[in-house]
């Protein structure tokens, strides 16, 4: 087998990925260095203006805001997700696959629908308001929908299953005897968790955090639906450059930055995982 190079098996897929992913992405890369034409077209002269514009205080502010929201969502998702994964890993082993399946199931239903569900809950005439009235709270509730909080909740809700999955993987591989050894050597449950379990499962936490952060910072659906029209994140900015403002080179530059952030974080995470892999091998 090993002398064969079955390239013919891979050719259709690789050709497809080259034509409809690699080349378009390279195109975006190139577009970022061209000038915007007078009427929204593209003028083929080299410029760094688009990249410079990203660091303009106006846009840099949006970047920071997006990073803040994405970071907050990732943090909350990781805390809830890790707790859930831990609880699933602590369940009897026959129930674990079932619990995991149901934890992940919502992830595969429509993103828009899941986001819309929160509109129904948070709306001024929504379920939470209704519930408050029914409980006898008659004063005006603070606005729930179209707030930063609503966006964060939406992001956490949508990406939580992913975090559970990412954290469950190392937790389930952990040899229970390692925790027992720590207890046997005199450590309390909390100390064992902090000194043994947590470090050994850190790669899963890192994976979960990075993915939620990356998916959130480039998101435009959730801010558009739960943040209302006025709320801007990078995703919305990119969207606007292509569909309303017609400044493709700037949109391209923005998405390049997005890709750069993603690659940077993924590299960092790979590096961290490799460093921790000594501990992981011990656990498997």
């Amino acid at each position: 087998m090993q002398d064969r190079k079955p390239l013919y098996l891979m050719t259709p897929a690789l050709a497809w990925l080259t034509a409809f992913m690699v080349i378009p992405c390279l195109l975006i890369l190139a577009l970022a260095f061209f000038r915007r034409g007078l009427y929204g077209g593209i003028e083929y002269t080299f410029t760094l203006e688009n990249l410079a514009l990203v660091f303009d205080p106006l846009y840099a502010g949006i970047f920071l805001k997006s990073a803040w929201i994405a970071g907050l969502a990732a943090l909350i998702a990781v805390i809830i997700g890790y707790a859930a994964a831990f609880a699933i890993a602590a369940a009897p082993s026959r129930q674990q696959p079932i619990l995991l399946f149901f934890a992940v199931l919502p992830f595969w239903s429509n993103y828009l629908v899941r986001t819309y569900a929160w509109i129904v809950l948070l709306n001024r005439e929504g379920l939470i308001t209704g519930l408050a009235r029914w409980l006898g709270y008659d004063a005006e509730l603070p606005r729930l929908l179209y707030t930063e909080g609503a966006v964060v909740v939406g992001l956490v809700y949508n990406y939580l299953p992913f975090v559970i999955l990412a954290c469950y993987a190392p937790l389930s591989r952990l040899n229970p005897e390692i925790a027992e050894a720590s207890r046997d050597l005199g450590a309390s449950g909390w100390t064992t968790f902090r000194r043994v379990v947590l470090p050994m499962t850190a790669p899963g936490i890192a994976t979960g955090f990075v993915f939620v952060f990356v998916l959130s910072i480039g998101n435009f659906v959730t801010p558009a639906l739960l943040g209302g029209g006025q709320f801007q994140m990078i995703g919305n900015l990119v969207y606007a450059q292509f569909l309303t403002a017609n400044d493709w080179p700037f949109g391209a530059a923005l998405s390049m930055i997005l890709i750069a952030i993603m690659m940077g974080l993924l590299t960092l995470q790979t590096f961290a995982t490799e460093r921790a892999s000594g501990a992981k091998r011990e656990g498997s």
């Binding site: 480039g218 292509f242 949109g251 998405s255 997005l258």
Partner: peptide, 8 residues
């Protein structure tokens, strides 16, 4: 990110 592939 979907948005990047989409605009590309």
């Amino acid at each position: 990110p979907d948005i990047v592939l989409a605009i590309a």
